[in-house]
Design a protein around this nucleic acid. Structure first.
Ligand SMILES: Nc1nc2c(ncn2[C@H]2C[C@H](O)[C@@H](COP(=O)(O)OP(=O)(O)OP(=O)(O)O)O2)c(=O)[nH]1
Ligand SMILES: [Mg+2]
Ligand SMILES: [Mg+2]
Ligand SMILES: [Zn+2]
Length: 579
DNA sequence: GCCGTTTTCGGCCCGACTGTTTTCAGTCG
C-alpha cells in the first residue's frame, strides 16, 4: 500500500510542477522537490509523528512554511494552497510535462500561445503543423513531440536490477573489447545498489580523440533501438528491452571525478558541489578545481579527502546523513558479501522448489561455501506450493537427519516457512513448530485486510513462542504490486520487544525490508536476516542484491544474523524461542 | 522556500547536447 509519506510527497512534487509551469522562481520549485525527497526518505509516517507533537521543520529542507502545510495535511488530508494552485492551470498540462524533451518552458508556451491544455490538443496542433511556427520551436521539435506522443511515456517505468544488468551486458562486452577504452564501470542508481533502476549509467574513460569513435560504436550496436543523444562526451540509447542506457566519456585523469558525478545521487552531488563553492573551489565531472588548478580528479577517495571526508560507499550516497558521518570519519563498516555464512530461508522439491534438498544443499556447500542451510519449505495452507502438513514436516525432519550424514561439511537446520492465517494464528500447531530449528512466518494470503487488521494479524503471529523471524515483512513485489497495508513501525517495535529477527528477502522482486526500514529496524536493535528465498541453487546469486539493499540500510555485519558462525547462530535462534 | 560562526538577505551545482538561434534557451544527466 502507498505510504502516507508518499501521498504527502506527491502533493509537493505536483506543486513544484505547477509552479514551474507558472514560471515561478526555480529555487522555490527546488525547495518543494527537495522537501518531497526528504519526506519520502522518512521511515515513519510524518503525519503520525506530527500528531504526536513532532515539528516537521526539524527535518532538513523543511522550514516554517512547509511545516505549516504538512500540519494542515495532517489534520485535513489536504493542502488548500496546493488545491488552489491546481485550479491555476489546466489539469492536462501536467501530463505534457512527462513527454521526453518537453519541459515546463515548452508546456507554458504551448498553453499560452496555442491554448493547448492536454495531450489530444497537443497531438492535433502538431499534426496541423502549428507548433513549428512558435518562437523557439521548429520542424524538428514538432517531429520530436509527435514521436514522444507515440511512445508510452506516461508511467515512469523502473526496472529490476537483474533486468538492467542484462540490458547493459552486451555494451559492457563491446567496451571491454575496445582497446581505445581505458576504464569503464556501471554508475548511477545501479552502483548505489538501488532496488530498482530507472536506467543504466555507464562511465567510460578514454583519450579525447578516441571518444567519438567509442560513442559511434556503442550507438551502432545491434541491440540499440533508438538513439536519444549522440555526442562525444555523452550519449544515450534505448535498447530493445526499452531500457535507456546513458554513457559518459571523459579523459582518464578524470576517472574519479566522473565516477563520483555519475554515481550520484543528484542530492549527494549537490551537497558536495555546494561544499566546494563554500571553500572557493568548483567540483564537476572533470575534477575539483581551485581556479584553474586541479586539486583532485583521479580517484573518488582523492576528492573526498580534499574535503576532509571519509569516502562514503556508493550505497550511502543519498544525502541521508552520510556527510555528517564522513566528516567525523564515522561511516559504518558496512556488511559485505564475504561476511555471509549461510541461508535461513529457501525451498526444495518438498514444496515449490526446483531442486531436491540434497542437490540444493550440496550446491550451497560446494559452489557458495555456505556453513549452514535451513530447509524452510512452505506450510500446508499454501496448497498451490504443495505446502507441508504435520506428517510431511516430520518426514522432512527424518530426511534431514539422513542428509546430515550424506552431505557433511554444512550444518543443516530444520525449518518451515509457516503461513500466517487470517486471524494471526499459524498454519501448523505448536507441537510441530517446537520441533523445528527455524520457524519463519509469512503472509501469503488475505492481502486486502485493513491496515489495522493486517498489523494485528502480524503482531499476533509474532507472539507465537516458536517463531524465528518474519519473512518479506511488507509483501511487496517490485514493479508488480504494492505491499499489503501494514504498520511496519509497530512490527519493528514488536520484534524488538519480543526478540525475533526481521528478514531482508534478497529476491530481486522483493528486497523486503527495504533500505529505510532495515536502517530503522537495526536502530531499534532488531537483528536482520538476509536470505535469497532460493527455489534453485542459481537463485543464491541474488544475494548480491540483498547485500546491496542491506548496505543502503547502513547495516554492519554484526547487525545481520547470517554473518554468525554456527554456534552463535544456534544461540541467537534459541533466544528467539519464548518457551 | 530554505538556510546561516563571515550572512536573517541574498545566495541556491554544474555541464553536455539539441535545436533554434546569430549567441543561447531548454532539457536532461
Ligand atoms: N550534479 C548533478 N548530477 C546529476 C544531476 N542529475 C543526475 N546527476 C548524476 C547523478 C545521478 O546519479 C547520475 C545518473 O543520473 P540518473 O538520472 O540516471 O539518476 P540515477 O541513476 O541516480 O537514478 P535512476 O534510477 O536512473 O532514476 O547523474 C544533476 O542535476 N546534477
Ligand atoms: Mg540512472
Ligand atoms: Mg541516467
Ligand atoms: Zn519463501
Amino acid at each position: 500500500m502507498e505510504h502516507s509519506n508518499a501521498a504527502l510527497a506527491r502533493q509537493f512534487e505536483q506543486a513544484a510542477d505547477i509552479l514551474e509551469i507558472l514560471g515561478e522562481n526555480p529555487f522555490r520549485v527546488r525547495a518543494y522537490r527537495n522537501a518531497a525527497r526528504v519526506i519520502n526518505d522518512q521511515p515513519q509516517p510524518i503525519t503520525d509523528r506530527v500528531r504526536e507533537g513532532f515539528d516537521p521543520a526539524d527535518l532538513p529542507g523543511i522550514g516554517a512554511d512547509l511545516a505549516d502545510k504538512i500540519r494542515e495535511f495532517t489534520t485535513t488530508g489536504h493542502i488548500a494552497w496546493i488545491d488552489d494552485l491546481r485550479t491555476q492551470i489546466p489539469a492536462g498540462l501536467l501530463e505534457l510535462l512527462r513527454l521526453p524533451g518537453v519541459g515546463p518552458k515548452k508546456v507554458r508556451a504551448l498553453w499560452q500561445e496555442l491554448g493547448i491544455t492536454d495531450l489530444d490538443g497537443l497531438r492535433a496542433a502538431a499534426e496541423a503543423q502549428k507548433i513549428q511556427a512558435l518562437p523557439g520551436f521548429g520542424k524538428k521539435t514538432e517531429q520530436n513531440i509527435l514521436k514522444a506522443l507515440s511512445s508510452d511515456f506516461l508511467q515512469e517505468r523502473r526496472f529490476l536490477r537483474p533486468v538492467g544488468k542484462q540490458a547493459v551486458a552486451p555494451f559492457l562486452e563491446l567496451l571491454a573489447a575496445m582497446d581505445t577504452v581505458d576504464r569503464f564501470e556501471i554508475a548511477g542508481s545501479y552502483r548505489r545498489g538501488r532496488e530498482t533502476v530507472g536506467d543504466i549509467d555507464v562511465i567510460i574513460t578514454a583519450r579525447e580523440t578516441d571518444a567519438p569513435a567509442i560513442m559511434d560504436a556503442l550507438v551502432a550496436h545491434p541491440s540499440v533501438q533508438d538513439v536519444l543523444v549522440h555526442g562525444p562526451g555523452k550519449t544515450s540509447v534505448v535498447t530493445e528491452l526499452d531500457i535507456q542506457i546513458d554513457f559518459r566519456v571523459v579523459a582518464p585523469e578524470s576517472w574519479g571525478a566522473a565516477l563520483l558525478y555519475f554515481t550520484g545521487s543528484k542530492a549527494h552531488n549537490i551537497v558536495l558541489r555546494d561544499r566546494a563553492r563554500n571553500r572557493g573551489w568548483k567540483l564537476n565531472e572533470f575534477g575539483l578545481f581551485d581556479g584553474k588548478q586541479c586539486i583532485a580528479s583521479k580517484t573518488e577517495a582523492e576528492i573526498y579527502d580534499a574535503f576532509g571526508l571519509e569516502t562514503p560507499p556508493p550505497e550511502l550516497r543519498e544525502n541521508r546523513g552520510e556527510f555528517e558521518a564522513a566528516e567525523q570519519h564515522n561511516l559504518p563498516r558496512l556488511i559485505c558479501i564475504e561476511d555471509y555464512r549461510g541461508n535461513l530461508h529457501a525451498h526444495s522439491t518438498w514444496s515449490d522448489g526446483k531442486q531436491t534438498l540434497h542437490d540444493i544443499i550440496t550446491a550451497a556447500r560446494d559452489e557458495f561455501h555456505y556453513s549452514y542451510w535451513a530447509a524452510t519449505d512452505h506450510s500446508k495452507s499454501l496448497t498451490v506450493a504443495n505446502g507441508l502438513d504435520e506428517d510431511r514436516v516430520l518426514q522432512q525432519i527424518d530426511e534431514i537427519a539422513k542428509l546430515r550424514e550424506t552431505v557433511p561439511g554444512i550444518e543443516i537446520l530444520t525449518g518451515i516457512e509457516c503461513d500466517i492465517l487470517e486471524d494471526g494464528t499459524l498454519d501448523l500447531p505448536d507441537e510441530i513448530l517446537s520441533r523445528l530449528d527455524v520457524v519463519i512466518i509469512a503472509i501469503h494470503s488475505k492481502f486486502n485486510l485493513s491496515r489495522k487488521a493486517q498489523t494485528e494479524r502480524m503482531l499476533r503471529a509474532m507472539d507465537n513462542p516458536w517463531i524465528t523471524f518474519v519473512a518479506h515483512p511488507t509483501g511487496r513485489l517490485l514493479t508488480r504490486r504494492e505491499g499489503y497495508a501494514i504498520d511496519i513501525e509497530r512490527v519493528i517495535r514488536h520484534a524488538a520487544e519480543r526478540g525475533c529477527f526481521l528478514e531482508l528477502n534478497a529476491s530481486p522482486w522483493r528486497l523486503d525490508l527495504n533500505d529505510i526500514y532495515c536502517r530503522e529496524a537495526a536502530a531499534a536493535g532488531v537483528p536482520i536476516t538476509i536470505n535469497t528465498d532460493a527455489h534453485h541453487s542459481r537463485d543464491l546469486n541474488n544475494l548480491e542484491h540483498g547485500i546491496a539493499q542491506a548496505r543502503r540500510g547502513w547495516l554492519r555485519a554484526d547487525q545481520v544474523i547470517n554473518t554468525l558462525p554456527v554456534p552463535q547462530l544456534r544461540d541467537a535462534i534459541r533466544r528467539t524461542k519464548l518457551a
